[in-house]
Each structure stands twice: as structure tokens, then as C-alpha cells.
Amino acid sequence: MAEMIFAGFGGQGVMSMGMMLAYAGMLEGKNVSWIPSYGPEMRGGTANCAVVVTSDEIGSPFVTDPDVVVAMNLPSMDKFEPRLKKGGLLIYNSSLIEREGGRDDIEVIGIPANEIASELGNSRVANMVVMGALLAKTGVAKPESVKDALRKVLPAHRHDLLPVNEQAMERGAEYVSKDR
């Protein structure tokens, strides 16, 4: 059972990240749910989504004490780090967040997602760099399932973006394995 929160600025791809992971979980035959925060704030504001992936029945789809938090910007880290379960995992975007985690009862990984994405020539795949790292750390879904989900979710005329997304995931996975 994995209860996760993905949070960041509108536009950083946190909603699609969560959706992709839910899709991948579904393709693996698991029960999944995805709930977006929705409100009057949108562009430039903060956005987050709650994702549950489990082989059990999903009772509450709301995530109050997440196992995993992905924070793409500082306000998101400030908001969700305290809610993590003891022993949980915080992955944050160290390209935009200067402070380190403030808790010693969780695992914390900073990943320079924007820098890595820029090296790949597309700053918009920063979310997929983090996705790669998340999958490598947690095994919540197989990278192949996320790649399949991407192929299904991206419209055909956007399939030229598949390779860079896949590279981003691989770079994210590499980053956390060499880091350990």
C-alpha cells in the first residue's frame, strides 16, 4: 500500500505525475485512486494531488498521512513534510528548494530535477526525473508500466516526446542509485 502526495507550482507537472503513476498501477492490476486539489487558485499557485496504489481495496482515497511526499517547490515541502508518516520518504526538487529536510525520522532525498531536465534539453521533464527517482526508491510501479501509461496518455502527435520523458526517468533513477 502506498499513499502519496505530489505537490508543486501549477505547471510543474505534479498532477500529471500523480495521474501517470495511478495509470501505471492500474495497468499492473492494482487498485488506484487520484484526487486533485481543486480550488480557485490555479496558474502560478500551488497544486497537489493524492494518489493511492495498493493491492487491497481502497477505503478512503484521501491521504492524510502519506508514505511518500514529492515536493517540487518550497511551499509544498513546508506544507507536506510534517504530514509524512514516520519512516516515510520525502523527495524534493533541490533545483528550487534550498533548505534540506527538517525531520530525522523520515528518509529525505534532494534531486536537482530542473538541472537534469535542462541537460536533457527539455526543462519540462523535471517531473519525470523525479518520477524515475521515486520508482527506483519505492518500487511502487515498474518503470515499464509508467512508460506504457505515457504512451496511452500522450496523444499520438506528442509521441515524439516519449524518448525524452523516458531518458528523464532513467536519469532520475540513476541519480538516486549512485547517491545511495
Partner: peptide, 10 residues
Amino acid sequence: DGTLGQMMEP
């Protein structure tokens, strides 16, 4: 309710 409308499930 808002949640059921906005959430995604299989």
C-alpha cells in the same frame, strides 16, 4: 460531491 466528481479511479 466535489471529490467524486474530480477524482480519478479505474
